[in-house]
C-alpha cells in the first residue's frame, strides 16, 4: 500500500501512484460512469420518443399527425446546442414557477424582480438545503430530457423512413389474410422495420456518444471538465504541482471514445445479424452482392 502522506518527499512511480489516486482523480474516474449512464438512459428514451413520433407522423388523423411531424421537423431544424441550453433552463424555471404558484399562493408579486428570477424558498427545485447529490441528480435528469428530446426526433425520422421501407406487398398480403390495421402494424411492419432502421440508428448512436461532452456545457462535471481541470498546470498551492498536462488527459479521452466506437461497431454487427434472420437475401446488407 502506498503512503501518500508527504507527496513532496516521494518521486517517480510512487508519486504518480499517489497522484492518480487523489479524491479529485476518483471524481474523474466516476465521471466516466456518468457519461455511460447518460448514454444508457438517453438511448431507450430516444427510441421510445422516436417510435411515438414516427407512428404519429404516419397516422391517418391530422390531429395526431401534426404533433409528430412538427416535433420531428422542429428539432431537426433547430441547432442542437440551442436545445441543449434552452430545454434544461426552461424546464427548471417552469417547474419552479409552477411550484411557486401552488406552494406560495399567498405571494402575488411576479417571480421576475428586475434581472432576478425569485421563487419562494420552499418552491426551489431542488431545495437549497438538499444535499449536493440531489442537485447533481436533478441537473443530470434535466440533461437526459434534453438529450432524449433531440435524439428522439432524429430517431423518429429514421424510424418513419424504416416503416415506409417495409415492402408494401407484405402489408397488403397481411390485410388480405384478414388482419386488422393494428395487427398489420405489430405483426408485420413493427417486426420488419428494424433492419431498415438499424443503419440510421447506429449512426445516431455514434453521434450520441460523441455528443456527451455537451454535458460540460450544462454545468455537469463530466470527463471533459475533469480532463481540463486536472490537466491544467498546478502551482505549489496544490498537493501535487505539475506543468500543463492537458495533452495526456485529452489523449486518455481520445482512447476512451475510440474504445466506445470499437465496442459499438461490434454490437451493431451482432444486431444486424439478428435482425437479418428470416429476411430475404435482397435486403440483407451482410450478404455480398446484395
Amino acid at each position: 500500500m502506498l503512503s501518500c502522506v508527504n507527496p513532496d518527499q516521494i518521486s517517480g512511480l510512487a508519486w504518480l501512484g499517489c497522484y492518480l489516486s487523489t479524491a479529485k482523480h476518483m471524481a474523474f474516474y466516476q465521471s466516466f460512469l456518468i457519461v455511460l449512464l447518460l448514454i444508457a438512459a438517453v438511448a431507450p428514451l430516444a427510441i421510445l420518443l422516436g417510435l411515438l413520433s414516427a407512428s404519429a407522423s404516419r397516422a391517418r388523423f391530422f390531429l395526431i399527425r401534426l404533433p409528430g411531424t412538427l416535433y420531428i421537423a422542429m428539432v431537426r431544424g433547430i441547432p442542437d446546442i440551442v436545445f441543449f441550453l434552452f430545454v434544461p433552463l426552461a424546464l427548471d424555471q417552469g417547474i419552479e414557477y409552477l411550484r411557486h404558484r401552488s406552494l406560495c399562493s399567498d405571494q402575488t408579486g411576479s417571480v421576475w424582480q428586475g434581472n432576478d428570477f425569485v421563487v419562494c424558498d420552499i418552491a426551489k427545485m431542488p431545495l437549497s438545503s438538499a444535499s449536493q447529490w440531489v442537485h447533481d441528480f436533478y441537473g443530470f435528469a434535466l440533461a437526459v430530457v434534453a438529450f432524449a428530446l433531440v435524439f428522439g426526433a432524429f430517431a423518429g425520422n429514421v424510424i418513419a423512413g424504416a416503416m415506409a421501407a417495409v415492402p408494401k406487398a407484405q402489408l397488403e398480403t397481411a390485410e388480405a389474410y384478414g388482419m386488422t390495421r393494428r395487427q398489420v402494424y405489430w405483426r408485420i411492419m413493427f417486426r420488419q422495420m428494424w433492419i431498415y432502421a438499424l443503419p440510421g440508428l447506429s449512426n445516431l448512436w455514434m453521434i450520441l456518444i460523441k455528443a456527451t461532452p455537451l454535458l460540460f456545457l450544462l454545468g455537469i462535471q463530466d470527463i471533459v471538465y475533469w480532463a481540463r481541470e486536472l490537466g491544467g498546470a498546478k502551482t505549489s498551492a496544490f498537493t501535487y504541482p505539475h506543468p500543463d498536462w492537458r495533452i495526456w488527459y485529452f489523449l486518455g479521452l481520445l482512447v476512451f471514445y475510440l474504445m466506445m466506437t470499437w465496442v459499438s461497431e461490434r454490437g451493431f454487427t451482432y444486431l444486424n445479424k439478428q435482425f437479418s434472420r428470416g429476411q430475404s437475401m435482397a435486403i440483407n446488407p451482410q450478404k455480398e452482392g446484395a
Partner: peptide, 19 residues
C-alpha cells in the same frame, strides 16, 4: 446559503486534491 465560486483561480479559490 449556496456559495457559488469558480474553483480555478488560486489562491482566491481552487479545487484541491481532495476535491
Amino acid at each position: 446559503v449556496r456559495m457559488g465560486t469558480e474553483g480555478a483561480y488560486p489562491p482566491y479559490n481552487f479545487i484541491n486534491d481532495k476535491n
